Simulated scan of single mutants.
Amino acid sequence: MSWHGSSDAPPLVRIAAMAPSLQRGERRVAEAIVADRSGTVERTAQELADAVGVGRTTVIRAVQSLGYEGYPQLRVALAQEIAQETAHDPADADDADGTMVGAMRAGAARFAARISGAVAALAETDVQELVRLLDTSHRVLVIANGLSSALGLDLVLRLNSVGRSAELLMDALSQQISARQLGEGSLCLVISGSGASRATLAGMDAARTGGARIAAITSFARSPVAEAADVSLVVPPVNESFQDELIHTSRAGILLVIEQLVERFAVHRGERGREAQAASLSVLGGGLQE
């Protein structure tokens, strides 16, 4: 399986989404590219292969897995990515004053420079199909576990606010029971950053057995969750490396996509969406006290 997201996605976004599921040799190539993008631009495929300690064919396979026709196309894409970063460099975002606030500002600036990559891997057909399923399904069950649980709750609240009734159960066994009873014409919508949660995969299996369609929002293109879903929105990690993602496990990219997905869904519903939003605002207004 190779890259199937947007053709405009830059190399780092593709690597973030694909690297964890690449073959060992291909992953080493991807890691070498990330470690020295400028050097990769100057190297031939054979020179990169020699530097990594793999065969040239492994380099070519890795490049094609990332969605490029060949190594020259990757070099051009890397050069463009580096040039764009240089043009939009947030003044090195350096915490030169040595304060905690300075460090937070620096981190926020670095984060802001990468967050646009959250939507770079999305495919138009997948977004359209998920919006359609949200609109036409009899029931919508959201499954999210671990660090993704809060995102599942956020999605359910947002969907309900625009008139799309959705359910969320926090207990893994309850998720499986409810998923098994969804039936045809229903949707099981899964959120999983890692794409490998056993509890989440068990819920998906139950939904599949019951006849429901399955959609997923996840970080990695070839994760078990992505491969088990009928429709997948891949939101690559916003951290600089897979190791950073394991340590910091940011879900900000997925949160951004969820917000935008619900917005697109509300627009898709037209007058129904506007009426639901007006009703939600009325309830919120009534609950506020001066």
Rank of each mutant, 00 (worst) to 15 (best):
S6W: 07
S6A: 03
M18F: 12
R24K: 08
R27S: 08
D36Y: 13
T40C: 09
T40S: 06
E42A: 10
E47A: 14
L48Y: 14
G55F: 09
T58L: 06
Q64F: 15
L66A: 12
G70T: 11
P72T: 08
R75M: 12
L78Y: 11
Q80K: 11
T86D: 05
A87C: 04
D89N: 15
A91M: 08
M100R: 15
A103N: 09
R110G: 14
I115T: 08
S116L: 07
V131E: 03
V142T: 03
G146R: 09
S148E: 04
D154Q: 03
V156A: 06
V156L: 09
L159D: 02
L159G: 01
N160D: 02
N160T: 02
S165G: 04
R180I: 04
C188V: 03
I191H: 03
G193M: 14
S194Y: 13
A199L: 05
T200N: 00
T209N: 10
T209Q: 14
I214E: 01
S223Q: 02
P224G: 00
P224T: 01
A226S: 09
A229G: 01
V231K: 00
V231S: 00
L233K: 01
V234G: 01
V234D: 01
Q243R: 11
D244R: 08
H248G: 08
L256H: 03
I258S: 01
L261G: 00
L261V: 02
R264E: 10
S282N: 08
G286M: 03
